[in-house]
Amino acid sequence: MTGTERTPVRWQMAVRRAWHGFMRHDGIDSAAALTFFALLALLPGSLALVSVFAILDDRDRAVDDLAAVLDTVLPDQATRDLEGLLRELLSLNNPYVALTIALLLLIWTTSGYATAFGRATNKVFEVEEGRPFWAFRGRMILVALLLDLLGAIVITVLFGPGDWPVWAVLRWPVLLAFAVLFVAVLYTFTPNVVRPQRRWVSVGSSFAILFWIVVTGGVALYAVFVDHGAVYGSLGGVIVGLLWLYATNAALVAGVELDAEITRLQQIAEGEDVARSLDLPVRDTRRIRMLRRQRNADIAAARELQNDAKGRAARGGRG
């Protein structure tokens, strides 16, 4: 059998192992945790967006524009409630102070999301987090700065001059390009492993982005044809948004699993024994060594206590 004939079997094996790995590494729980941290970043992100509108645009027009966007995915009552909240936020006497606070909170909460994604990725590659807290969180703050910058560019593209016919067409491939960069940053810089081949576009990231496009299209169709407000009330849009966010994070984790299994097949083809676990270099082991020292100290203290108890029991028996 030639290498070409073996390729479909290898792809089938990669997909099957990726699915098994997703279940074994608690991908469902990882997606839920990532959704929580993403929600934490939404409030400061919204405050930052509103503050920018308050600084650069007419406040009433800013509320109308944002409400029109929200109205496409949220039920009427939820849109009216959020519109009132937006007007209160835009009534801040000093939007520059609000913007500064919002950006600081946004960077910190986004770094929390990146930290959670790093832990989820470490599960996939079956490695421990070896970076000390200060080094790990410091790196994730830098990642958060880059992710927030990409997010700001995406928002600018979405709310840009849509009345330009050429831009109305070009904005979608531009958005896709920045989505690829966003996923590549997460996949490359958050885990504690150094991936052998650093590519901006991998099979796993392509799967995650494709799944995200399908889910987004499905949510858009659902919002058009189904009155989710009638089913869930004022929380209908929130529930639909949570499901979309959860599916997006599940796709991101599944994409990492697929990349890991493709890497495994490449290493197996090179003669390496990685059928059970991957052999990839780690970035740092200081935290692993520290936890190992702590565990050894705890075990030694427990054994000392056990020996003391045995000694007291022996003395009591002789008495």
Rank of each mutant, 00 (worst) to 15 (best):
R137K: 15
F136M: 12
G204P: 07
I155H: 05
A254G: 08
G255T: 09
I141Q: 07
V226T: 10
V238G: 05
V157A: 13
S234M: 09
Y222V: 06
G229R: 04
V194Q: 11
G237P: 00
A254N: 01
V214E: 07
V143P: 09
V214F: 10
A251E: 02
A152E: 00
I141P: 00
R195A: 11
P173R: 05
D148Q: 09
V193E: 03
R139G: 13
V238A: 11
R199L: 14
F189K: 12
D227C: 11
A152I: 12
S206F: 10
A254R: 00
L235I: 12
I141H: 04
I155F: 14
A168R: 12
V143K: 07
V169Q: 12
A168Y: 03
V180A: 14
Y246C: 11
A179Y: 04
L243Y: 09
A208M: 06
G138Q: 09
V224S: 11
L176G: 14
I141R: 03
P196N: 07
A220M: 12
S234L: 03
A208Q: 05
G151P: 00
D163R: 14
A168Q: 11
A251L: 02
I155W: 10
V224I: 12
L176E: 06
P196Y: 02
P196V: 07
S202K: 04
G255L: 01
V174Y: 00
D148G: 04
F211R: 01
A135E: 03
G160W: 04
G241P: 02
V201C: 03
S234V: 15
V185Y: 02
L210S: 15
A135G: 04
V203A: 15
A177Y: 01
V194H: 08
L221W: 14
L145C: 15
N192R: 01
Y222N: 03
W212N: 08
V226S: 06
R139K: 12
V224P: 00
L176V: 15
L170S: 10
F225M: 04
A179L: 10
L150N: 09
W172G: 09
G162C: 06
L145G: 15
G237Y: 01
A208N: 08
Q197M: 10
V215M: 06
A144R: 07
R195H: 12
V226Y: 09
L245G: 15
P173C: 03
V185P: 01
V215Y: 05
V201P: 00
L150D: 08
L176K: 09
D227V: 11
V185N: 03
W164G: 07
L146R: 02
F133Q: 06
L252I: 13
V219K: 06
W167Y: 14
V215S: 11
G217Y: 03
F207M: 08
F207C: 04
F136P: 00
F136G: 09
V174P: 03
L242A: 05
L146I: 13
G217M: 05
I141N: 06
